[in-house]
C-alpha cells in the first residue's frame, strides 16, 4: 500500500493549527498597529504614525510568511477574520506601551510554537521559526527602546517633540554594539 498520506500530510495537525492561530495573531497585530497609526496621525504625531504604519506592514509580511509556509506544505491555511483592535488611547506613551505588550505576546507565542515543534520532532518547522525568533528579539528591542524614550525625554510638549524626531531612528544593531 502506497504512503499517500505522507506525500500530502507534511505537517502534523497540531502544528498546522498552531500556525493558523499565529496567522490570526499576526493579522491582528497588523490591524492593531494600523489603529495606532491612525491615532498618532490625527494628533499630529506624524513620525510615530509612520512608525506604526511600517509596523503594520511588517506584521502583514509575517502573516504571509506563515500563510505561504502552510500552503507550500499543502496544508490548509486559514485566512483570518480579525477582531476590532483598540482604537482609543489616553496618551502617546500608552500607545507604545500597548505595542510592547503585543510584541511580548507574539514572542511568547512563537517560543511556544518552537517548543511544540520539538515535542513533535518537527525539525523543518522549527528551522522555519528560527527567523521569527530573531525577528522578535528585534521587534521587542525597538518597542522597549522607544518606550524608554518617554522616560529619557519626558512627556511635555518638548519631550514629545524630541521623541517624534527620534522615533524613526530606533534600530536594533543585532547585538553588535
Amino acid at each position: 500500500m502506497k504512503d499517500i498520506l505522507r506525500r500530502h500530510h507534511v505537517l502534523k495537525e497540531e502544528i498546522v493549527e498552531l500556525i493558523n492561530k499565529q496567522i490570526k495573531m499576526e493579522a491582528h497585530s497588523s490591524s492593531a498597529y494600523l489603529a495606532m497609526a491612525a491615532w498618532c496621525d490625527v494628533r499630529g504625531y506624524d513620525n510615530s504614525a509612520e512608525f506604526f504604519f511600517k509596523q503594520s506592514d511588517e506584521e502583514r509580511v509575517h502573516q504571509l510568511k506563515f500563510f505561504h509556509y502552510l500552503t507550500d506544505m499543502e496544508c490548509d491555511a486559514v485566512s483570518p477574520g480579525t477582531d476590532m483592535p483598540q482604537h482609543e488611547f489616553p496618551t502617546l506613551r500608552s500607545v507604545f506601551e500597548k505595542a510592547l505588550e503585543m510584541e511580548i505576546a507574539v514572542t511568547d507565542s512563537i517560543h511556544n510554537m518552537v517548543k511544540v515543534c520539538r515535542e513533535h520532532g518537527d525539525i523543518a518547522t522549527e528551522e522555519f521559526l528560527r527567523w521569527f525568533v530573531q525577528e522578535q528579539i528585534e521587534e521587542e528591542f525597538v518597542a522597549r527602546r522607544t518606550l524608554e524614550l518617554f522616560d529619557v525625554l519626558g512627556e511635555d510638549k518638548i519631550g514629545l517633540g524630541l521623541l517624534e524626531q527620534q522615533v524613526l531612528s530606533v534600530q536594533y544593531d543585532g547585538g553588535n554594539a
Binding site: 499517500i4 498520506l5 506525500r7 500530502h8 500530510h9 495537525e13 499543502e74 496544508c75 490548509d76
Partner: peptide, 11 residues
Amino acid sequence: FRACEFISFKR
C-alpha cells in the same frame, strides 16, 4: 477524496 480534501474533511 484526494489527500488534502480528505484531511480537511476530517478536520
